[in-house]
Design a protein around this nucleic acid. Structure first.
Lengths: 237, 237
DNA sequence: ATAGAAACTTCACGGCGTATAGTTTGCTCA
DNA sequence: TGAGCAAACTATACGCCGTGAAGTTTCTAT
């Protein structure tokens, strides 16, 4: 039988990895539009059709890339969060947010790939391209909300949210991780998420460029206000 | 001389309008990817190349569409704002925000056209595709900030913003319109903008679908908190 | 050694944007 | 009125794209 570790399989895995890597390189250098089977194949000295042996379709390849890039983003913010276990909540939240923005600025194409309509005719599969990574990021933010919850709870007393308002798979991750966080806290997490995403998204897509020359300062100030709105006082400067 | 109102010019204007209208129809029915010169021409019983008589390039057409759609969005929110001249600030702001979200939900393709990478290889021209409309929307939000400023001012006392942080053309619109609004107020406007944009953008691109089944409720709650963070108490319900 | 599977190529089709060149149409002015 | 001209439009072609079908090579398991 074709046992694990056979030469055939190893080559196959290597080629698969090379396809993805070349695709990411093309995306980084020439934008998401450059992710074409023919360009990848050209770069690899192959025929475009050879790629069909590894990915059923171009959209399949793109979906895989999205999963990979999204996971990288999730890793980046999780690492930032894990790096400040003992810091006060305000500082932890700002660290997380800056990790998010920094990643986006360092990987603008990746950000577009994840959060936009990145590639010509690409149609995301049922339920989103990378629900797992999306949940990881969201769970990360739930961590922010959980850290702030003792201070913020009284501000969100009459929230209309119930568990049934949320996606089950998401709750399966969040509820065990943060048993003290009620529905209002999860909603708070999503709203924080929207807030951070909003400014970064405007910046990455260039919609702030026509308005301010200091997007970083704007983000900084928004963060300070966000922290304040959580009932925590931000540190100065 | 070919005086104004000549038959030639009228036909030309009609054809130009039809091209744009067909393009918008295709976008609405089949998504932004459907905006191809060949498809438009097919629909009009013409050759794709005939369109080059009206638009220098496909990207030119797309830029024109973006301007048009962006203007429609600006009209929608301006109308909502103008419709509640005497209401309390909290209500006006919520009306504006709902007009924005409702427009986005009713014109998701238009939203993507404006705020995403909408069409295959489209590259926005220098300075953005529609800086005028972008400034109009931003000026509208400055109106929100201006309305809230008397209540909110003390919250943003030590803002680090100065006039030089903003785009000159934007300030040319905002400063005369809201002479009482300092740099910190303009920054507040941009941050409000990012906040509203963030949730709507996540919703339109389907990134909330994997997390909550009640995006409207989430938006509602974010709005209530936004108004509260401006120093105004939101109405109940 | 050989049958078969896997990897890869070749060829083909239709769709895309757009450059070039040619044709028709309608207006203007002598 | 008719000659000339410009605008509107078509035809053809090129090089991209994704992808299907069929053929060829190469490796592997028996």
């Amino acid at each position: 039988m074709g046992s694990t570790g056979g030469r055939r399989e190893r080559l196959r895995a290597e080629t698969t990895a090379e396809i993805k890597q070349v695709a990411l390189k093309l995306m980084a250098s020439d934008g998401p539009d450059a992710i074409t089977l023919r360009a990848i194949a050209r770069e690899m000295g192959m025929t475009a059709n050879a790629i069909y042996g590894y990915f059923a379709t171009r959209d399949d390849l793109v979906t895989t890339l999205i999963k990979e890039v999204y996971t990288a983003l999730a890793d980046a913010v999780d690492t930032a969060w894990a790096g400040t276990p003992a810091a006060p909540p305000a500082e932890r939240i700002q660290t997380w947010a800056h990790a998010f923005r920094d990643w986006a600025l360092a990987n603008p194409e990746g950000f577009r790939l994840i959060y936009g309509d990145p590639v010509p005719g690409y149609l995301a599969p049922e339920g989103g391209a990378a629900p797992d990574a999306a949940h990881r990021v969201c769970t990360g933010i739930a961590g922010l909300a959980d850290a702030a919850w003792p201070h913020a709870e009284h501000l969100y007393a009459h929230s209309a949210f119930e568990w049934s308002d949320f996606d089950g798979a998401l709750l399966d991750e969040i509820r065990p991780a943060f048993p003290g966080l009620p529905p209002a806290g999860v909603a708070l997490a999503l709203r924080i998420w929207g807030r951070l995403h909003g400014l970064v998204s405007l910046e990455i897509y260039g919609h702030l460029r026509t308005q301010t020359v200091s997007p970083g300062k704007l983000f900084q100030e928004e963060l300070a206000q966000l922290v304040r709105s959580l009932g925590i006082e931000p540190e100065d400067t």
